[in-house]
Write a protein that binds this DNA or RNA. Structure first.
Lengths: 200, 200, 200, 200
DNA sequence: CATGAATGAGCATTCATTCAT
DNA sequence: CATGAATGAATGCTCATTCAT
């Protein structure tokens, strides 16, 4: 019984949040493939995995929740920065800069998100990722129409930029000395150079 | 007994190669997480998994072998193209172009490599990958010394280029309409723009 | 506390009836082995299984109630038909005919009953069933005494007739083309031939 | 690995047979719904359920094996008796008589078979049972064509006879005092009366 | 060299039941 | 009276690994 439909009580919200937090911890520390209900329950201080199944319809449901939560948080922070810009170029660079900034303050969340996204390729669960790629490609197309961007393939460029950003998330965990300032400046410059129309 | 140390007989070499081939098949067809000794043995026409454990110290050992073999093959093909170039810029663009070309002709191998790399993050097993990144950063540094490349952080750029290339491997499977020609041209242009010194 | 002893309030009667109805629905639609408190609660529009445990001592207790209710209903309908007959032979054939007729009008109930009976064999819970068999055997014995029935073993015959009737319940679900008329006529004839004293 | 395809070694045949025997024990003693791999392993003296999964593709596979084994054994004993008869009536009565005789000598096997058959209704696994019913109906049709049997619906009669025989298996476990001689004689007479053409 | 049976921990999931509120 | 969160054992099943032969 229970497991995920309809309104949720205050207590349950808490439990669910606690489980999601524990899941993120485990994903970050052991990697997505090694993330099991057993490990999450242990980390959450739960006595059995049944508890997790009680609150989530299954592993996919839990992971969807993790992804949804993190995307929502990121969208709030990054989306605000993008909307503040008027031009396509400004929005693209704001997207890159705000993404890296978000990695700085929430790098565990981003790490978890990347782990899940890459770990579930092909499971037909890559909805949010695909949507983000589509939005990015659309932004690039807009900039091309306005003459801000040069003539590249928007889909290829979207994938390229997105993967370049993944590099930050993946390498900043192991390489904490690397300065975020540097990553931010470098990526913004790189993406700008890769996309902008040459001045004549 | 046995399992992986010291000199190897002719027959054993053959068995190992056969197992590695089967492993690649399974990884490509079912994904890394679903790749088990059982499935590999089945695909290799072996009657039990004992055979695999006999020849490899464990799953990690087998996967290391797969990675090593593929990297060696790729290094031979891509490395040749790089060495044919004289300038750092020429070598960098040759690396990008040859990498995409290698994906085209050996996309199963690249696919397997990507699956393993993504599937094992956190296992501290990224030896060959790290070496490749270091080589790439070194090439970038050289180009900066000769004045061919602008002043960027070579390590950050190396990661960025490497991840951009990963995008090809990941997205070409699902997106077969996308032309290799396009990806190749777009990525070469993008990397060139991102790295080259502006003409004055 | 609570759970099944002593007098029951009006409200509680209603709740219990509601749960029993939901249980029958689930049994018919998913089969006895897949009938869980969770599924029954869901079907009954209850938010948790606790409600069911509160009203019934356990799964067995609930199932006993289902069985009891259905037997009571059947006894009323079938019993009336039997009592309308004067002779043992008339009563036996009325029992067979009325049973099949009851299957036709209440086949969901009969289906549930059969599922429970078959699903719980060995649980020593066959009270109503055993009572029915005893009543049937008694009727047969009566008919032998009056000379209407030939000389067979009444207990064996009771089991045989009872199981033949089970066949209707089991096969009519899958075989909806089969006409109830046919089953009724065939079974009445068969039972009559099997039991009656030969005319001399 | 392993699990059920291709040739089987001597040792494995033994293990499989041992597991099948244990499965029958558990089914007879606890009923089909309570028969789990855990219980079977325990009964077979196996240290884990993994052992069973190693030898059988799954629960269904194991149960299919049990059914197959028992049907094969029964077919040998009962089939021989049927083939010895020339007429349809002779064959039908031989089938009934030999079935009961088989119950006497192998009542645990029959009990297990009945448990499985009834316990898996609707799982699309009732192949052997359906085949038996079809064969029986065919025999009845033959007898009608030769004028040995009266004009009844052969499918309905097949189900009826089959269920009457199930009654023996189900009731002889609890009712061991009941004499097999009686059951045999009673059922043969009953079936004969139910089916035969009236002498004119 | 090679086999394949055996192991036992681990997996996600379902279940009836309990109990504080 | 009613709730619903929590429990923990049990389910079938997969896995990498071991080891006697």
């Amino acid at each position: 019984m229970r497991a995920n439909d309809g309104a949720r009580s205050f207590t349950e919200q808490g439990r669910r949040a606690q489980i999601v937090r524990a899941a993120i911890d485990v994903i970050v520390e052991r990697g997505y493939p090694s993330t099991s209900f057993g490990r999450i329950a242990e980390r959450a201080g739960l006595s059995s995995t049944g508890m997790i199944s009680y609150h989530f319809r299954g592993k996919d449901d839990l992971m969807d929740q993790v992804v949804t939560d993190i995307y929502a948080e990121a969208a709030e922070l990054v989306g605000g920065r993008i909307d503040a810009e008027q031009t396509a170029r400004g929005q693209l660079l704001a997207f890159v800069e705000a993404s890296v900034a978000y990695y700085r303050t929430h790098h565990r969340h981003v790490r978890a998100l990347t782990e899940i996204t890459l770990g579930r390729r092909g499971d037909d669960r890559s909805g949010p990722r695909d949507r983000e790629l589509a939005d990015l490609a659309e932004l690039l197309r807009t900039g091309q129409r306005t003459g801000e961007f040069r003539d590249f393939d928007p889909d290829v460029m979207a994938v390229t930029v997105r993967h370049a950003l993944d590099g930050v998330a993946l390498h900043l965990g192991a390489d904490t000395d690397r300065d975020f300032e540097t990553w931010s400046r470098e990526l913004v410059t790189t993406v700008d150079r890769a996309t902008r129309e040459d001045p004549t």
